[in-house]
Amino acid sequence: MTITENSKITLHFALLLEDGQVVDSTFEREKPASFVFGDGNLLSSVEAQLLGLRTGDKETFKLAPEQAFGQRNPANIQSFPRSQFNADMELYEGLVISFADAARAELPGVVSSFDDERVEVDFNHPLAGRSLLFKVEILDVQAQGEMS
């Protein structure tokens, strides 16, 4: 069966940096990934690459930053007074800190630099601005609603 916009898909995938470093993969896991086309589990740009593939197909797609996590946005780097952080908090570059946005939802930020007066926090997605490789092996394709 061919992947269409009404498919339930079971697959193994790997998301890699251009140098081959694995960001996430199901290939070594006991259980592959399953999703319904359009359910939001995969980026729509990735789903579009899957259209027309069949059970048994293996492909690798290059995703430009705009197809993946977008370009880095300088406005997503914020500077805070050091006094807004607990005095005993050990800061270091790369530290992930959880903030709350205006709707009280969790918003992770990464400390990019700091000194005694200011802390610079980067709220860009860690993969923003990066081209990625998406490697996929299609294990099963069913029409949505079919039983396994």
Score class of each variant (00 low, 15 high):
Asn6Lys: 14
Phe37Met: 15
Phe27Asp: 10
Asn73His: 11
Gln78Met: 13
Leu50Ala: 04
Ile9Asn: 03
Asn86Gln: 14
Asp88Lys: 14
Leu53Cys: 11
Asp39Arg: 05
Phe13Pro: 12
Glu18Ala: 05
Phe69Asp: 06
Pro32His: 03
Leu53Ser: 03
Leu42Asn: 01
Asp116Phe: 00
Pro81Gly: 08
Pro65Asn: 05
Glu106Asn: 14
Lys31Leu: 13
Ser25Tyr: 07
Asn73Thr: 06
Leu43Lys: 14
Ser98Ile: 14
Phe35Val: 01
Gln78Val: 11
Glu146Leu: 02
Gln67Ser: 10
Leu95Gln: 13
Gly109Tyr: 09
Val36Ala: 02
Tyr92Val: 01
Val23Cys: 04
Ala102Asp: 12
Pro126Gln: 09
Ala48Ser: 14
Glu18Thr: 11
Ala105Asn: 15
Ala68Val: 06
Ser83Cys: 08
Glu90Ser: 07
Gly56Asn: 10
Val22Leu: 01
Met89Ser: 11
Gln84Lys: 11
Met1Arg: 14
Leu43His: 09
Phe13Leu: 07
Lys31Cys: 03
Glu5Gln: 15
Phe27Leu: 05
Gln142Phe: 07
Ser131Lys: 02
Arg104Asp: 13
Gln49Pro: 06
Lys62Val: 09
Leu132Arg: 04
Phe114Cys: 07
Thr2Cys: 04
Leu133Lys: 13
Val119Tyr: 06
Val46His: 04
Ser83Phe: 04
Gln142Asn: 10
Gln144Ser: 04
Glu137Ile: 02
Met1Gln: 08
Glu47Arg: 09
Asp122Tyr: 07
Leu91Ile: 10
Arg54Gln: 14
Gln21Trp: 04
Leu95Gly: 02
Phe134Asn: 02
Glu120Pro: 00
Asp57Pro: 08
Gly129Ile: 05
Ser83Pro: 03
Ala128Thr: 09
Ile97Lys: 05
Ser79Phe: 09
Arg82Pro: 05
Glu90Val: 15
Ser112Phe: 03
Leu107Asp: 01
Gln21Glu: 12
Val121Gln: 07
Val111Trp: 11
Ser44Trp: 12
Ala68Asp: 09
Arg118Leu: 00
Tyr92Leu: 05
Ser34Gln: 13
Ser83Asp: 06
Arg29Ala: 09
Ala64Ile: 05
Arg72Gln: 10
Ile3Leu: 05
Ser25Phe: 05
Arg130Pro: 03
Phe69Pro: 08
Leu51Met: 12
Ala100Asp: 10
Glu117Cys: 02
Asp39Ala: 02
Phe69Cys: 02
Glu117Lys: 04
Gln144Cys: 07
Arg130Asp: 07
Val23Glu: 08
Leu15Trp: 06
Lys8Cys: 07
Asn86Asp: 12
Leu91Val: 02
Thr2Asn: 15
Asn86Ala: 11
Ser34Arg: 12
Phe61Gly: 00
Arg118Trp: 00
Phe114Trp: 10
Phe69Gln: 10
Phe13Thr: 09
Val23Ala: 03
Lys62Thr: 13
Leu91Ser: 03
Glu47Ser: 01
Thr10Arg: 14
Asp101Trp: 12
Glu146Arg: 12
Phe114Lys: 01
Ala33Asp: 11
Gln144Met: 10
Met1Ala: 11
Val121Tyr: 10
Val141Ile: 06
Leu127Tyr: 06
Leu43Tyr: 09
Ser7Gly: 04
Gln84His: 02
Gly129Asn: 07
